[in-house]
């Protein structure tokens, strides 16, 4: 069953929803974060982080545990307010116009925010209503999200009864049901078995064709297969920013893993 999603992806890669076509032009910058800083109490968790994301780009946010990745993503998704800095989503200031800006965002936290007592259909319908999908387009949006995430057969099932892989798909489906311009995924493949990993990665790659995706991970194979560009964080600071191809050629390293280790051990300032 886990392999079905690949078929769905190929079949579904043809039509592009109309609201995507009316969104920012290809290569347009969909997200700009400037000088984000965040403290928990006196302890700085994120310091002076700036990043941009272009339409159709998959950006990998890398770093060891505790580097500040999740906090950065929570700020980008509007859950946390930065102590200072600005976030622009498709030209809308996330702090000044959160309602409009958040409609352009889909967020999957590290733990999928699932109501286990609901069926997949009921949950996704609720998520769509939260994102202000109009009642006229809601059935189509629901069918499309389920189709893209390989959940066609799962609609009436209770979320609590689904496997971890399917729960992850439901989590991704809630993040894309309103056709956002930007999808933020916080470690979306943690705890999945190899078959589930392959399917979810294929789905993320497919999402990257039509949306801008920010992906937090510490799996370098994921970066290799999914990401166009890489940002590396350490101790709350962005220490490296470049394309995946350039990162692979970093120093005299032979693999991304070596490059990552060398960067996190040696880099002090953000690279140009």
């Amino acid at each position: 069953m886990s392999g079905h999603i690949l078929g769905y992806i190929q079949l579904n890669s043809q039509p592009v929803p109309p609201d995507i076509l009316s969104s920012p032009a290809p290569d347009a910058t969909t997200l700009i974060a400037r000088n984000l800083t965040r403290h928990y109490g006196q302890y700085p968790v994120v310091q002076d982080v700036s990043l941009t994301l272009k339409r159709g780009e998959v950006l990998g946010l890398l770093g060891h545990n505790g580097a500040g990745k999740s906090t950065t993503l929570q700020m980008l998704s509007g859950i946390l307010t930065p102590d200072s800095g600005e976030i622009e989503i498709c030209g809308l200031d996330l702090l000044r116009a959160p309602m409009q800006a958040k409609r352009r965002l889909g967020f999957l936290p590290e733990v999928p925010p699932l109501y286990r007592e609901l069926s997949v259909d009921a949950y996704l319908t609720f998520a769509a209503k939260l994102r202000r999908v109009s009642p006229d387009t809601l059935p189509d949006a629901l069918a499309d999200a389920k189709y893209r995430c390989g959940l066609n057969e799962m609609g009436p099932k209770l979320i609590a009864t689904l496997s971890k892989g399917y729960q992850q798909r439901v989590g991704i489906a809630q993040a894309i049901i309103h056709q956002p311009d930007i999808i933020i995924l916080d470690e979306p493949t943690v705890g999945l078995d190899p078959a589930q990993l392959r399917d979810i990665r294929a789905l993320i790659r497919e999402l990257g064709d039509t949306h801008s995706v920010i992906l937090s991970t510490h799996l370098l194979t994921e970066v290799e297969t999914l990401c166009d560009r890489v940002e590396i964080m350490r101790d709350g600071k962005l220490i490296y920013s470049d394309t995946r191809a350039h990162m692979a050629e970093y120093g005299d390293t032979a693999s991304l893993e070596e490059a990552f280790m060398q960067i996190t051990e040696t880099e002090e300032e953000p690279a140009p």
């Binding site: 859950i79 409009q100 109501y115």
Partner: peptide
């Protein structure tokens, strides 16, 4: 506790 608050807080809901 169930970490579902993220869904509400990241949605366009005041």
């Amino acid at each position: 506790r169930n970490q579902t608050l993220a869904l509400l807080l990241s949605s366009p809901v005041s």
